[in-house]
Amino acid sequence: MEDPAFVRVHALGNRFEADLLMTALEQEGIPAILRSFEETPYDGLFVPQKGWGLILVPEDQLEEASRLIEEILRDLESRRLYQDPDQVDELLWRQLDQLDPEDVCRRAQVSYDRDRSGYRVPFLTGTLCCLPGQRALELIEAPTGTRLDFQLVLVVLHYLLEAKATPLAGKWIGERDIPGGALFFRGPHAFPTGRLLQCFGDHREAFCRALEALGGVPVSHGDAAYRLWVLPRVPLLLIFWDGDEDFPAELKIRFDASIQDQLQALDTIWALINLVARGIAAPLPGGL
């Protein structure tokens, strides 16, 4: 029987949906119980009839939880429309094609291949080639977990268009410290740190191996931390705290305070983090 203090708010289709929604509810301070039909004595017998499982929430927070879940599922559905690189706005390609390559290279700290009329863009441990005239992005050396998709093309185009030749601020900030970030980076736009922690478990060693595989440099923060260069002017700091019997493991992502000098829009920053998270999780069981 359901706990009398909790009521059903959503039937789940799969484990991915469960992880996403439970993380979002937790970040919004809404207590939630996950009941998976796969983990019952019936060993998944009811999954085809009832779904993968249920989420239960306190009755007095049912309306708030329902609104949050509806927003996330709506966003998931819209994101499925934006997976193909060809769906990136043509205007971005046209704008880049009209810029002076020398200026782009100076601002973004990239190089220009005149034989191919394309920009060579360092990305994590690899190199990309952006060809505005062909409306194409190529993976010259693909970092772990990198695949050619909508988010990768979007981030690279915005970086080449927007990057400024300004020095780093030398101050690390969280996503909620970015103007507008406190409202934007929540619900469907929350960073996937919860799902990464599920990949790591409580194993700091797995975190360290994954970050080192992407070129991360150890720094002194938390129980383990790495500075990671995603793009030439975009460093990230990832900080891991071990869990114990009182507190779960925790993962935080920090930006140099100059981040919006290089990527202006919050949704582009969110896409950047999704790309990095995918690279981190690639060698781990399940990935992202």
Rank of each mutant, 00 (worst) to 15 (best):
Met1Ile: 12
Pro4Gly: 09
Phe6Trp: 04
Arg8Glu: 14
Asn14Ile: 11
Arg15Pro: 07
Arg15Met: 12
Glu17Asn: 04
Ala18Met: 14
Leu20Asn: 02
Met22Thr: 13
Leu25Ser: 01
Gln27Phe: 05
Gly29Glu: 13
Gly29Ser: 11
Ile30Val: 10
Pro31Glu: 09
Pro31Ser: 08
Ala32Val: 08
Leu34Ser: 07
Phe37Pro: 03
Asp43Glu: 11
Lys50Glu: 13
Gly51Asn: 11
Trp52Gly: 07
Gly53Ser: 12
Leu54Ile: 10
Leu56Trp: 05
Val57Trp: 05
Pro58Arg: 06
Gln61Asp: 10
Leu62Tyr: 11
Glu63Asp: 13
Glu70Val: 00
Asp75Pro: 03
Leu76Ile: 10
Leu76Gln: 15
Glu77Leu: 13
Tyr82Leu: 15
Gln83Ser: 12
Pro85Val: 06
Gln87Thr: 14
Trp93Ile: 08
Arg94Ala: 13
Gln95Arg: 15
Leu96Trp: 03
Gln98Asn: 13
Leu99Ser: 08
Pro101Gln: 08
Glu102Lys: 09
Arg106His: 13
Arg106Pro: 07
Ala108Phe: 00
Gln109Thr: 05
Ser111Ala: 13
Ser117Trp: 11
Gly118Ala: 15
Tyr119Ala: 02
Arg120Tyr: 08
Thr125Glu: 08
Leu128Gln: 04
Cys129Ser: 13
Cys130Ala: 14
Leu131Tyr: 12
Pro132Arg: 00
Leu137Pro: 04
Pro143His: 06
Thr144Ile: 14
Thr144Arg: 12
Gly145Ser: 08
Gly145Leu: 03
Arg147Val: 11
Asp149Arg: 00
Val156Leu: 15
Leu157Pro: 01
His158Glu: 12
Leu160Ser: 04
Leu161Trp: 00
Leu161Pro: 02
Ala163Lys: 03
Lys164Ile: 06
Ala165Ile: 03
Thr166Ser: 14
Pro167Arg: 03
Ile173Val: 15
Ile173Lys: 00
Arg176Ile: 09
Ile178His: 01
Ile178Ser: 06
Ile178Met: 04
Gly180Asp: 07
Gly181Met: 03
Gly181Val: 03
Ala182Met: 12
Leu183Lys: 12
Arg186Pro: 09
Pro188Ala: 07
His189Asn: 14
Thr193Ser: 14
Thr193His: 10
Gly201Lys: 10
Glu205Asp: 15
Ala206Glu: 14
Phe207Ile: 06
Ala210Phe: 03
Leu211Tyr: 02
Ala213Met: 13
Leu214Thr: 04
Gly215Phe: 04
Gly216Cys: 08
Gly222Phe: 06
Arg227Val: 07
Arg227Ile: 04
Leu228Arg: 00
Trp229Tyr: 13
Pro232Ile: 00
Pro235Ala: 05
Leu236Ala: 05
Leu237Arg: 01
Glu245Leu: 12
Pro248Ala: 09
Ala249Val: 03
Arg254Tyr: 15
Asp256Gly: 02
Ala257Met: 09
Ala257His: 02
Ser258Gly: 12
Gln260His: 07
Gln264His: 14
Ala265Phe: 09
Ala265Thr: 05
Thr268Ile: 14
Thr268His: 11
Trp270His: 10
Trp270Glu: 08
Leu272Met: 13
Asn274Thr: 14
Val276Arg: 01
Ala277Val: 07
Arg278Ala: 12
Arg278Cys: 10
Gly279Arg: 02
Pro283Cys: 08
Pro285Trp: 01
Pro285Cys: 09
Leu288Asn: 08
